[in-house]
Simulated assay, not measured.
Amino acid sequence: MLRKYDKALAVFFAFCSLGLLIALVLNRDLLDWAFARHQNQLSWYIRPLFIIPFCYFAFKRSFAGIFFTLLCIFSSMFWFPEPSTVDAKVQEFLQYELNYLTGDWGIPKVLLTLIVPVSLTLLAVAFWYRNIWFGMSIMAFIAIGKIAWSIIFAGESGKSIIIPAIIGFVICLVTIKFGMKKIRGVK
């Protein structure tokens, strides 16, 4: 039954994501509130895990599932309460990210930022067409890219992303590899 409404639901979830993005861009208080809650590192650990359902829904060719997962990724930064204490490196890194997002946008910054949707699109395409190894390579690129961007641009505080990114990547790889063996008999 959901297959019948897949594209309509995908459009709905895409508009929800776009609405959330616009709300965060236009309302600085909302953005500050979200980033204060994003200091809770549980959101750092949960976000990479959404790659698992993202890949699953791409494998199942469900646009609605893919776009619902993207909405979850966007909104998960503020699912958890604001922590009572925050590591100084975490706070410094998130301040860098906030400044990056709210600062001036030129062509180089736009092109660099476009790597995120392009890599997610490639990841979805890889699983859509059942190219598991290409998909896992894209996952590695995403994890390494996030770590590299964080350290190159945010300096020492960017290292605070290393453990959540690696743990998320390893869990994703193991889960997807195990899932593919179960579902498709992929070796």
Rank of each mutant, 00 (worst) to 15 (best):
residue 118 V to C: 02
residue 75 S to A: 12
residue 142 I to T: 01
residue 60 K to Q: 11
residue 120 L to W: 11
residue 40 N to M: 07
residue 146 K to F: 15
residue 70 L to F: 14
residue 134 F to W: 10
residue 151 I to E: 10
residue 166 I to K: 02
residue 179 G to W: 08
residue 147 I to G: 09
residue 15 F to G: 11
residue 30 L to Q: 03
residue 180 M to R: 08
residue 143 A to C: 12
residue 168 G to T: 05
residue 147 I to M: 14
residue 75 S to N: 05
residue 58 A to M: 06
residue 183 I to Y: 15
residue 25 V to C: 08
residue 20 L to I: 00
residue 120 L to T: 00
residue 140 A to H: 11
residue 184 R to C: 15
residue 39 Q to R: 06
residue 89 K to D: 14
residue 131 N to T: 04
residue 137 S to C: 12
residue 22 I to C: 13
residue 160 S to D: 04
residue 146 K to E: 15
residue 104 D to A: 13
residue 6 D to S: 11
residue 18 L to I: 03
residue 152 I to P: 09
residue 167 I to T: 11
residue 105 W to I: 04
residue 93 F to S: 03
residue 182 K to Q: 15
residue 187 K to E: 12
residue 44 W to S: 02
residue 27 N to P: 02
residue 67 F to T: 01
residue 104 D to T: 08
residue 179 G to S: 13
residue 121 T to V: 09
residue 37 R to E: 10
residue 63 F to R: 07
residue 73 I to K: 02
residue 171 I to H: 03
residue 46 I to R: 04
residue 93 F to R: 01
residue 136 M to I: 06
residue 76 S to T: 01
residue 17 S to G: 14
residue 62 S to V: 01
residue 138 I to H: 04
residue 23 A to F: 01
residue 94 L to Y: 03
residue 112 L to M: 09
residue 8 A to K: 12
residue 145 G to Y: 10
residue 149 W to Q: 06
residue 34 A to W: 07
residue 154 A to Y: 10
residue 68 F to Y: 13
residue 76 S to R: 00
residue 81 P to Q: 07
residue 105 W to V: 04
residue 115 I to V: 14
residue 40 N to C: 05
residue 182 K to L: 15
residue 105 W to H: 10
residue 174 V to R: 06
residue 74 F to H: 07
residue 184 R to M: 15
residue 96 Y to P: 06
residue 149 W to M: 05
residue 56 Y to W: 14
residue 125 V to L: 13
residue 44 W to H: 05
residue 126 A to E: 09
residue 154 A to C: 12
residue 182 K to I: 15
residue 2 L to G: 14
residue 144 I to S: 11
residue 101 L to V: 00
residue 94 L to I: 08
residue 58 A to Q: 02
residue 143 A to T: 07
residue 87 D to V: 00
residue 120 L to Q: 03
residue 7 K to H: 15
residue 137 S to N: 09
residue 158 G to T: 00
residue 129 Y to T: 02
residue 122 L to E: 12
residue 136 M to A: 10
residue 109 K to C: 05
residue 166 I to E: 06
residue 127 F to H: 00
residue 158 G to R: 02
residue 139 M to W: 13
residue 136 M to V: 06
residue 111 L to E: 09
residue 86 V to L: 09
residue 93 F to T: 00
residue 143 A to K: 03
residue 2 L to R: 13
residue 116 V to C: 09
residue 163 I to N: 06
residue 171 I to T: 02
residue 101 L to T: 02
residue 23 A to N: 01
residue 15 F to S: 15
residue 54 F to N: 07
residue 115 I to P: 00
residue 90 V to E: 08
residue 92 E to F: 12
residue 154 A to H: 11
residue 101 L to F: 14
residue 175 T to D: 03
residue 65 G to Q: 02
residue 98 L to Y: 13
residue 147 I to C: 11
residue 164 P to N: 09
residue 71 L to E: 00
residue 39 Q to G: 00
residue 1 M to F: 14
residue 81 P to E: 06
residue 170 V to W: 10
residue 64 A to N: 04
residue 46 I to Q: 07
residue 36 A to C: 04
residue 122 L to R: 05
residue 107 I to G: 08
residue 121 T to E: 08
residue 55 C to W: 04
residue 110 V to F: 15
residue 52 I to Y: 07
residue 108 P to F: 09
